[in-house]
């Protein structure tokens, strides 16, 4: 549902980086972690809906997904969190920091000249 406001924020960021938007943006690359709570298909839909009829119409939204990765404070292991079990797979300790998986970033844009 909030994919709409996420799409609006992406458009704002694109505009800020293209001096208001006369350049032809052919693609926007975004990075979305598995834990970011954003559904890619829904974001794609919202992005094309709000860019229709604007200078961004037809720009491709390319979504890169990142897995949930954690770092264990106890044993130092970095591992992927599988099946939503937020414990260190090696020592089973609960003291982990999520080092990747929360991302919701605009990585780069591609401009046709």
């Amino acid at each position: 549902m909030h994919e709409l406001s996420v799409a609006e924020s992406i458009v704002t960021i694109i505009k800020e980086n293209t001096d208001g938007g006369d350049a032809k943006v052919s693609a926007v690359r975004v990075r979305i972690g598995e834990l970011a709570g954003v559904i890619p298909e829904s974001l794609e839909f919202c992005f094309s809906a709000i860019t229709a009829g604007t200078s961004l119409e037809g720009s491709r939204l390319e979504i890169e997904r990142t897995a949930i990765v954690c770092h264990c404070e106890a044993c130092g292991t970095d591992s992927t969190v599988n099946g939503l079990v937020f414990r260190c797979p090696r020592c089973h300790g609960p003291h982990i920091t999520i080092t990747s998986g929360n991302e919701l970033q605009v990585v780069e844009i591609e401009i046709d000249d």
Binding site: V6, I10, N17, T18, L104, Q105, V106, E108, E110
Partner: peptide, 9 residues
């Protein structure tokens, strides 16, 4: 041209 942005949405 590719413009690197790397910004949180």
């Amino acid at each position: 041209a590719v413009v690197t942005i790397e910004r949180k949405v």
